[in-house]
Amino acid sequence: MYDAPDELIDRAAAALRRRHAPNPRLVSRIVALVEGRRRRWWRAVTWPSAPFSLSATATLAAAGLLLGFLSREATDSTGHDQPVAAQPGAQAIPLIPAARASGEAVPVPVQFTLRDVRASQVSLVGDFNGWSQTATPLEPGVEPGTWSVTVPLSAGRHVYAFVVNGKWMTDPRAQTAPDLDFGRANSVLIVQAP
């Protein structure tokens, strides 16, 4: 009843459809833009030359390294407020390199952990690895159901999610940011430069 055939509407729509022509200039511009960008696979992120010290974590974190979920956009508009205990836990643990080159932006090693006894395969996806489901797998820990991976992240806001047994899920302990374009929320993490 809503889309009954209507000659006038059909003719108007057909004319509107044919109103525009290919725009090779725009196509070239877009392709050139993305070729210049490439995918952001670990872009601008390199590990520090010296290994970082796990034992330094607590001290340095207390000294001012902030890893938080402080984005203005980081509001879960979906109203999800399920108890963490009922879900797999996830925790990002800030680590800091023991040595860094002076004057250079140094990536901050960040450990992502997840607790989910049902998981048989877990990976981390985010804007820092091109949302690749294969680039950053989490390794199972000694304790059953624990998974973790450490990745170097540049300072700034990062958006990420876990893929557990092939299904995307947000980090239940992190703030989420709804993404209108892609139809699902992701977790938000802000890393401040050490």
């Binding site: 725009n23 833009l33 960008r37 996806v125 804007d127 091109g130 949302w131 374009d181 892609f182």
Partner: peptide, 17 residues
């Protein structure tokens, strides 16, 4: 053109999703 260009660049950056 601005909207279309922004769209495709955003698509490219998020193809992993």
């Amino acid at each position: 053109e601005e909207a279309v260009q922004d769209t495709f660049v955003r698509v490219y950056d998020h193809l992993g999703q």
